[in-house]
């Protein structure tokens, strides 16, 4: 058997299982979606935002609501594995344990990305500007990719503590800040209609974040989970 193919199939099996659980239980995406909308509404009242929001504010609001909402999904994703210690079952499977990490990152990414895709038309409607731009979707892929690959690692870490999932935001937000800054900055430029040269360094930055955090997950996921 080809070890690389085995590895990919293990990643896919874990992703497929998460999709199945989500499809059955529907406890991740809907909760994240509702929560992200609530954040949008709260900010509107708190900051008295107008419908013709500047590109900068809309981009910031989009990422803040995504960042808040995805912690719910990340926590759900690891608590699902801890509920009956299903994680032990995966740890004992004859696959490299980093495959579990990749599988979980991919499922977390898919769920948050789905929420992001739903938010785009909603934002377009609320703030009277077309947010459905291919480049913005690309920024979302890169930004959420980096965010969830760090988030999955830290969620696995925080679930081991006495306070369990409460700790995740405290660990995740400050560490993810550079990613969020880069995502907001490039989204802002895209919404303001600036040429690609203005924000491509931010996009490269997001790509670097993806590589860095994925490498960290690859290195430390097993260390975090073993007792």
């Amino acid at each position: 058997m080809n070890p690389f193919r085995d590895y990919l199939s293990a990643v896919w099996n874990i992703l497929r299982k998460d999709l199945q659980v989500e499809w059955r239980g529907r406890q991740g995406v809907p909760v994240m979606l509702v929560f992200s909308l609530l954040v949008v509404f709260l900010f509107n009242f708190a900051l008295q935002l107008s419908p013709d929001l500047q590109a900068g504010l809309a981009a910031g609001l989009l990422w803040v609501s995504l960042a808040f909402a995805s912690t719910l999904g990340l926590n759900r994703s690891v608590s699902l594995e801890q509920e009956n210690k299903a994680m032990d079952g995966m740890l004992m499977a004859p696959v490299d344990r980093s495959a579990i990490y990749f599988g979980k990152v991919l499922s977390n990414f898919s769920f948050t990305f789905l929420v992001g895709l739903v938010l785009l038309p909603v934002f377009s409607l609320f703030y009277q500007q077309n947010m459905f731009k291919p480049m913005l979707v690309l920024v979302m892929v890169l930004g959420l990719g980096a965010y969830t690959s760090l988030g999955t690692l830290l969620a696995a870490l925080s679930i081991q503590t006495r306070t369990r999932d409460v700790l995740l935001p405290v660990l995740l937000y400050p560490l993810a800040l550079p990613i969020l800054i880069a995502a907001v900055e490039s989204s802002r430029s895209i919404l303001a209609g600036q040429p690609i040269a203005d924000y491509q360094s931010w996009m490269t930055f997001l790509l670097a974040g993806n590589i860095l955090f994925t490498a960290a997950g690859l290195m430390f996921f097993e260390t975090i989970l073993e007792e």
């Binding site: 660990l171 880069a182 900055e185």
Partner: peptide, 28 residues
């Protein structure tokens, strides 16, 4: 010790990222 070590390493790894992001602000 174990989880603290992982966190200390991941945190330090984001420091260059943070400072790189300041540099980008400069150019913009």
């Amino acid at each position: 010790a174990r989880l603290g070590a992982v966190y200390a390493i991941v945190s330090a790894a984001t420091v260059p990222l943070t400072f790189f992001s300041i540099r980008l602000f400069r150019t913009i």
